[in-house]
Amino acid sequence: QRLKVEDALSYLDQVKLQFGSQPQVYNDFLDIMKEFKSQSIDTPGVISRVSQLFKGHPDLIMGFNTFLPPGYKIEVQT
């Protein structure tokens, strides 16, 4: 299914809420998105960085997985 802008906004809100006391985490996420857009990093690079950034937050990782193309997935460690 195709995700919409509202889904992206909702996910970003979720990230901001969870790291309300650590705004640097959201800034780091924006940096990853910037590097992806400028093609400094590719999809596997994004996956690697995001999985480190959101380590210990399986709901955020599962939410992020919904934006990945088929065949890509961050494994959640429980």
Binding site: V5, M33, T43, Y72
Partner: peptide, 19 residues
Amino acid sequence: MAAPQLVMLANVALTSEVS
């Protein structure tokens, strides 16, 4: 880039970056 939804997420994140 064959990751259109990830591009969309990045676009939304970067355009809504108003603080």
